[in-house]
Amino acid sequence: MSVFIIRRLMQAMLVVLVMSFLVFAGVYVVGDPTQILVADDADQAERARVIAELGLDQPFHMQYLQFLGGALSGNLGESFRFNEPALQLILERLPATLELAFVALAIAVFFGIPLGTWAGLRPESPVAKTIMTGSILGFSLPTFWVGIMMILLFAVILGWLPSTGRSDEITYVLGFPTTLFSLDGWAHILLPAVNLALFKLSLVIRLSRAGAREVVHQDYIKFARAKGLSESRVILVHVMKNILIPVVTVLGLEFGGLVAFSVVTETVFAWPGIGKLLIESISFLDRPVIVAYLMIIVLIFVFLNLVVDIAYSILDPRVRLQDMKS
């Protein structure tokens, strides 16, 4: 097992290195930030001074090597706009995004798995068909539009929930700032979390349904019934554990997606997370922040992949065996 983890870690480091190059090169070609950063009426000497100060007069490979050197000591550059370390800017806003992504994931799991399993066990029933139609809507309706409609309905027309922003009632749990311990916090997070969850919820429903339909016809399910087990044990233990394997795999990877693509939801609901920071940084061509953001996302994905591999080996004993051989 430990050999397996070390091997995965080394692969992960290689992925991060390659990604850092792609990200840096990608942002390099996007545009010239000096046009936005330097005042229009500055003279040539002033312009050259700013460019040299930001290190933009260096050739590409020197800039990249400097970035790598800084990154190794935990310095991902300073924001052009705020003159603060880019990493600090992101880490300040990361808890808000993680909180949002976590609640969205919880919604997707706690509603998706039961609904999908139910639909898979009784595929012909009208309720199952309604669930599946709903999941198609969840897949195909654009997130920003659903978000706006939710604000219109629940905040403007019904006035039940606040339309935008995050609650100020922050509690620190193990050093992690969260608003989930206050009613106001939940009132603020509910709409954006549901909005962010819709796509994943549909995905979980479809996965669980496909899993349930496949598993329920297996001989071992019939054999479990032939043993005289109660229906609830057959479904909750024998069927569920087999369904969970693909669901855990996909969800682990999708959690990275939730964090990375919360951009749209955060923009619609003015949620003060890293997605909103990214959009602002792109419009100012604030290179260090964009690069730092993308590197953080890469790290999250790589880390989640590792976690999924380990969780998978716990759920499915056959994977564990292969790992031991490798």
Partner: peptide
């Protein structure tokens, strides 16, 4: 009680 035809499929693969 019943014994099934294919022993490779009778036992649930994810349960001990």
């Amino acid at each position: 009680a019943m014994i099934f035809q294919d022993p490779m499929m009778t036992l649930n693969p994810v349960l001990r």
